[in-house]
């Protein structure tokens, strides 16, 4: 079988590079991750369910996944809008805004966390107006939503932008020739083409928001059952030396990560097939 693999591959260095890659991956990723799985499997089924389905833990799932879903939706709508505006319109400062879209990628999560907490707090720059309107953001689940929206902002914009840029004018012009209004052209011609990328961006933003820790814990109230996110709960259990509990909950999060990773791969495969048609 090795000779069959070798036949198409004439360049040197296959053995060393693949070997090193697999070694590095195993040492840094596979062994640690499987330790998590083994430790979690070390609990009895009953013990595992007890940890994972406790009321406080379930409340944290609701807060974490619920807020992440909403944040990803907000990012899907506004991120799409932003990508559209950046690709198709002209306005002053467009290049700077385009570069700044990546800020949540580049800014360390702790810095983002303390900044958002300060800006949206009761006497913060944005918080004071919201508070006057009766909306308390800091230290509430709404604050978690704000932080998760910030962290997911680049994902939708950066997945939709390339697709928008590669749209050909002929398709829209053909639609206009055939009598479509602008809205019809958008809804029935453009949107289906962009949908795979939009869904991919949504899934990526959701996955990132679910696991997010640093940006969220400063602005969240961190009150159990109300505004406590699952990653924080894991750390709390670790600090109490409840390794079993921490491992069980972490394996749930890991399972969710795998499902999301699989979904994103599926969506990306779908958009590639769509693009090739």
């Amino acid at each position: 079988m090795l000779s069959r693999i070798r036949r198409g591959n004439v360049l040197p260095g296959f053995g060393p590079t693949l070997g090193y890659t697999i070694f590095y991956l195993s040492f840094i990723v596979l062994v640690p991750l499987s330790t998590l799985v083994f430790k979690a499997a070390g609990l009895t089924w009953h013990g595992f369910l007890e940890e994972v389905a406790a009321p406080r833990v379930v409340a944290s799932y609701r807060v974490t996944f619920g807020a992440a879903l909403l944040a990803a939706l907000v990012n899907a709508v506004f991120g799409f809008m932003l990508a559209w505006v950046l690709v198709r319109y002209r306005f002053p400062g467009k290049r700077i805004i385009d570069a700044l879209v990546d800020l949540p990628f580049a800014l360390p999560t702790a810095v983002a966390g303390i900044t958002l907490a300060t800006v949206y707090s009761a006497n913060g720059w944005i918080g004071r107006y919201l508070e006057a309107a009766g909306l308390k953001v800091a230290y509430t689940p709404l604050g978690i939503l704000v932080a998760m929206t910030f962290i997911g902002l680049p994902f939708v914009v950066r997945t939709v932008q390339p697709v928008l840029e590669e749209l050909e004018a002929e398709i829209e012009e053909a639609a206009v020739c055939l009598g479509a209004t602008r809205w019809q052209t958008f809804r029935r011609v453009l949107l289906p083409t962009i949908l795979p990328a939009l869904l991919t961006g949504f899934a990526l933003a959701f996955a990132r928001a679910v696991g997010e820790y640093g940006s969220v814990i400063f602005i969240a109230g961190n009150m159990p059952m109300v505004s406590e996110i699952t990653p924080l709960l894991i750390i709390t259990k670790l600090e109490q030396y409840d390794y079993a509990g921490a491992t069980a909950i972490a394996s749930v999060m890991l399972g969710a990560s795998f499902i999301l990773l699989f979904t994103v791969n599926l969506l990306q495969w779908w958009s590639r097939r769509y693009a090739e048609r």
Binding site: P32, Y213, A250, L261, V264
Partner: peptide, 29 residues
């Protein structure tokens, strides 16, 4: 630069840290 079976599994493994929560990443160590 090479063709071999299991390439997409390898690529997915490389992408893994992006989808794992940072807290879980620390916990495993």
């Amino acid at each position: 630069k090479f063709r071999f079976p299991g390439k997409s599994v390898l690529i997915t493994l490389i992408d893994l840290p992006f989808s794992v929560s940072p807290v879980v990443s620390g916990l495993i160590y």
